[in-house]
Nucleic acid binder design. Structure first.
Lengths: 195, 195
DNA sequence: CGGTCTCTTGACGGAGTTCAAAGCTAGTGG
DNA sequence: CCACTAGCTTTGAACTCCGTCAAGAGACCG
């Protein structure tokens, strides 16, 4: 468990990667956030629920996944410290989520509700800019991920993941990596055997 | 070739699908738009150019595509009457486009530059709402398309396209449909043979 | 009417899946 | 602290989907 001042600091330095935010501004924003601890395998957003919050990971590891018609899990995304996790489509349109968000590790999570975010936008106009930048980054990330799947072979997808986010390989079991890469665990094992 | 008043009307009824816009508001917006006619195979946005405009299709058929390392064309998107076409990432970030936009038919296109759109936002604040909605729809469309590729077999992708946008099948040669579906023309031919 | 563009056919091969089974590994309770 | 078990990873064989290559058959256009 991380202490509140430490959490606030972590958030501040995250924000400062994009915009300068004073301690006071960070404080104002922080008021609107909820801190919560989760153990492993807890659910933050259920399939078919409307996503009413953005989640920011202070510590831990989240996953977004759905179960397909064959009953097997397909992992859409992992997220670690200093990443946002949400279902943007569900959040924006207030439609039922088509995936579940849950923890793969004991995690400390900040969350902000839609209502509170609206209030925060009014109190701290600069936040609009931050969240626009985050939305743009999300859009670009989605397009990058498309290219990742469309242009690369499964071996290349694995190597790219290993190069770009080696953390995942350390912290996530291989069959989940396989699911994320959209191949079977058996074939991933084959790939890894041949370097 | 379509006449200017008719074009204005078409734009107005498009906008009214999302927000009520008076004739005056439509007129104000229309001032910022350029009308241009293109013949078949003309290029609207070149690869490596920065995308400085949004395009709205009054009449005709556009395509977004790139050439991969093997020298074969991959089609990312088709667009027909009353659709917007742009490279949002390139437009927003002012980075070189990684695909080309060109015409597959004789087309009549409205375009609006970034500068003009900014001016129009100031003159007609309601436009902000329209373009936010369009941006949201784009994001949702991108996610849908992801699912289209990730969840469906090539046969199902073909059937979905046939069901949802039969227009494309009438107006676009099969080898381009194949490229869009991410399969070879030979295999698409196979699929179609077996219903 | 000749050529380019488009669609189809068939043989072959490779990438990746499925199924079944065995071998590891790590967490848990006793 | 050990032993057990559930969770995870690997193996191999058979099979499927789909790409590649090569060739031919229409169809459209000047």
């Amino acid at each position: 468990m991380t202490s509140a001042p430490k959490i606030k600091n972590q958030l501040k330095s995250y924000i400062n990667r994009y915009i300068p935010f004073s301690a006071e501004e960070t404080d104002s924003f922080f008021k609107y956030l909820a801190i919560k601890s989760y153990s492993k395998k807890e659910i933050l957003l259920e399939t078919n629920q409307v996503c009413k919050q953005h989640f920011f990971i202070i510590e831990g590891l989240l996953r977004a996944h759905y179960t397909n018609e064959k009953g097997t899990d397909k992992i859409i995304q992992f997220a670690i410290e200093n990443w946002w996790m949400t279902n943007l489509e569900s959040y924006v349109r207030e439609t039922p989520s088509n995936f579940t968000i849950d923890t793969l590790e004991k995690s400390t999570i900040l969350s902000i509700s839609k209502d509170n975010l609206e209030k925060a936008f009014i109190e701290i106009p600069k936040l609009e800019r931050l969240f626009r930048i985050i939305a743009e980054n999300t859009l670009v990330a989605i397009q990058r991920k498309n290219e990742f799947y469309m242009k690369l072979s499964s071996k290349e997808r694995f190597l790219t993941l290993q190069r770009d986010i080696p953390d995942f390989l350390q912290r996530v079991p291989m069959y989940m990596i396989a699911s994320y890469l959209d191949i079977t665990p058996e074939y991933l094992s084959e790939i890894r055997k041949n370097l």
